[in-house]
């Protein structure tokens, strides 16, 4: 309406010289206005008609498909936190997939003559005691951190989803047994447990370290899945699905898990960061990966001996580690905001 009124105001302003022209203009303008108004009214009417009982969405407009994930994606796209963390993660993943594209030197080609050089245009992050290019080593270290983070979280989430949905869905005895095992597991601190188990292992590669972190890490996740499944299970649509003859496995896979996934995904994203930090901590303590593996934790561990003379050896892998952990945790936060606004 306001548009129409504005138009009229414009018309009321008479052109000084030609009154006839003015009248014509008025007629013309008012005429089109009436037509426009009529059209608008018809449209309104039609709209009203379309709104009559039951029809919530007008037939003309294509109903926007708003699934949980669709909505979440629309919300995420606009959030700077998500954009920043997602870009960082994408970059880190690309680096870990193709480190050679980014590295300037072969990380294992070391020359003792170049030992402990300060950062320069030739060696951006300087060189370590062995004379290896520190920038290239930091780049190659990404692969270890990211793969351990993803492997550990992937498998511990799968364990948690299986155990948690069984415990939550079937309840009773099953729940008690799984619940008590989880409780017992819960009291083992990740780092201390990792030290104990890993110190018994002679060779410690990515797989060994991941395995230990999986074994120590599923309990928290399982509790989360269980409580989430319990919350979803109370919904009427679960009863409804059962009344319609769905089997137990179908109920869990189709009706419960998709609805219980949101908090799990959020915590999984955060957990990737936590696991990466844990791996670095274990390597730093000397029970994680072993030389000649290239890992930020190991680099930080060796760098601490020269913290005064060559602080950059500590700083660069430290920055990479912090940024990586930070971006996964940030991603988890952004996902939480989008998937479960109530938790904010």
């Amino acid at each position: 309406m306001s548009d129409i009124r504005d138009d009229r105001a414009g018309v009321a302003d008479p052109p000084d010289d030609d009154p006839k022209l003015y009248a014509d203009t008025v007629r013309e303008r008012v005429g089109t206005d009436i037509v426009a108004q009529q059209a608008a009214r018809e449209e309104d009417h039609e709209h009203e008609f379309r709104q009559t009982p039951g029809l919530t969405v007008g037939l003309g407009e294509v109903p926007r498909q708003a699934s949980l994930w669709g909505d979440a994606w629309r919300q995420l796209r606009r959030r700077p936190v998500f954009i920043i963390s997602a870009s960082l993660i994408v970059i880190l993943v690309i680096i870990s997939l193709f480190p050679a594209l980014f590295a300037t030197h072969d990380p294992r080609e070391c020359n003792l003559i170049d030992s402990l050089l300060r950062p320069s245009s030739e060696h951006w992050f300087g060189t370590d005691l062995q004379g290896c290019d520190y920038y290239s080593r930091t780049i190659y270290g990404t692969r270890v951190s990211i793969s351990i983070g993803i492997i550990v979280v992937f498998f511990s989430t799968i364990i948690a989803m299986i155990g948690g949905s069984i415990a939550g869905y079937f309840g009773g005895m099953m729940d008690s047994i799984i619940g008590r095992i989880t409780d017992i597991w819960f009291v083992i601190p990740t780092i201390l447990g990792g030290i104990v188990i890993l110190s018994l292992v002679r060779t410690r590669g990515i797989m060994n370290v991941s395995l230990v972190l999986i074994v120590l890490g599923w309990a928290t996740m399982l509790r989360l899945v269980r409580s989430s499944v319990l919350a979803v299970k109370a919904n009427d649509y679960v009863d409804a699905a059962r009344a319609m003859g769905a089997s137990n496995s179908r109920m869990i896979i189709r009706h419960i898990l998709p609805n219980a996934m949101a908090p799990v995904i959020i915590v999984a994203a955060i957990n990737i960061g936590v696991v990466i930090a844990a791996e670095a901590a274990l390597s730093f303590l000397g029970v994680g990966l072993q030389l000649p593996a290239i890992s930020w934790g190991l680099m930080i561990s060796t760098a601490q001996q020269r913290i005064i003379t060559a602080p950059y050896l500590l700083v660069f892998p430290g920055i990479f580690l912090s940024v990586t952990v930070f971006s996964f945790i940030l991603m988890g936060d952004a996902l939480r905001d989008a998937l479960d606004p109530k938790l904010r």
Binding site: N235, D236, Y237, D239, A240, H255, P258, N259
Partner: peptide
């Protein structure tokens, strides 16, 4: 069921 909003699965 009584309340179709809760008796239908929201994600499908």
């Amino acid at each position: 069921f009584q309340d179709a909003l809760t008796a239908l699965n929201p994600v499908f």
